[in-house]
Simulated scan of single mutants.
Amino acid sequence: MRLGIDVTLDYTIDGAADVLLLVEAAKGSDQRLELQDLRVYSNDPIRAVPGEDGIGQRCWARGDGPFRAEYRAIVEIVRSPVDLATLGDTPIRLMPPETIPYLLPSRYCESDRLEGFVQQKFADLTAGPLAVALTDWVSDHLTYACGTSTGTTTAMMTFAERRGVCRDYAHLLVALARAGGIPARCVSAYAPGVDPPDFHAVAELWIGGGWHLIDATRMASCADLVRVAVGRDATDIAFMTVFGSATLNWQNVAVTKLP
């Protein structure tokens, strides 16, 4: 699978402010960058820093008034689907140290408040079979509806409301997985067929000795996803963070399948 990515961000920064961009596709063994070009129109130089867990990179920029960023890329995805139900359990004490933070509650993924639900509803399941059951539950019980959540909506709020957008689906699946003893993190991604076209958020669960991408919205398969960044929740993977205030003028995210 080869994907073409075309992103334009056009904002007005209300006074001078630092801007953190997370829009570049991450290099990895399962996705190869054939072309990548990020252009930020600013009077100040940009600075790249490593992303969370060494995945991808963040770009620091400076905005003062009109702020525009353009990103183009061609990515080849070399990731094969995995039958999660066949993946076995790993005792928590034997998990790699880097997975442990993703077992703990975070600001938008209150996994500690969902432990009772997971223990009661999925008592006989662990590892891969539990991941499949949790994904199915989130997909079957939530309704995808734009405008029904905000930047402060948490997994518990989504659990109660039973509706949301990709960010909310990812938060709830991550929280449920952590409640069931599966390390889980949120991932910002590009994917074709996302409706409406936008930056996408999915979950990534550590099962059977490795990380596996899961889109509970069912809009994309793991073989269609281009990973950008990972983190505990949406706080860590926002495509643009302005340390000040900004007004959106225009934004476009286009992801297309290539021959």
Rank of each mutant, 00 (worst) to 15 (best):
T8V: 15
Y11Q: 09
D14T: 12
D18L: 11
V19Y: 08
E24D: 11
Q31P: 07
Q31F: 09
R32H: 15
E34S: 10
L38A: 10
P45D: 13
A48V: 13
E52N: 13
D53A: 15
C59N: 11
P66F: 08
F67M: 05
A69N: 06
E70N: 11
I74T: 15
R79C: 03
S80D: 13
V82Q: 09
D83I: 10
D89E: 14
E98M: 09
S106H: 02
C109F: 07
L114F: 01
F117H: 03
A123T: 05
A127I: 03
G128C: 06
V132T: 07
W137N: 00
V138L: 02
S139T: 14
D140H: 12
D140R: 14
L142V: 01
Y144W: 10
Y144M: 09
C146L: 13
T153L: 06
M156Q: 10
T158M: 00
R167Y: 04
Y169I: 01
A170C: 04
L172E: 09
A177P: 02
G180L: 04
G180P: 01
R185D: 04
V187T: 09
Y190Q: 05
A191C: 06
P192C: 08
H200Q: 07
A201F: 02
V202I: 15
L205T: 05
G209N: 06
G210C: 03
W211T: 10
L213I: 09
D215P: 03
R218I: 00
V230H: 06
R232G: 03
D233M: 09
I237G: 02
M240Q: 12
S245A: 14
S245W: 02
T247K: 14
N249C: 12
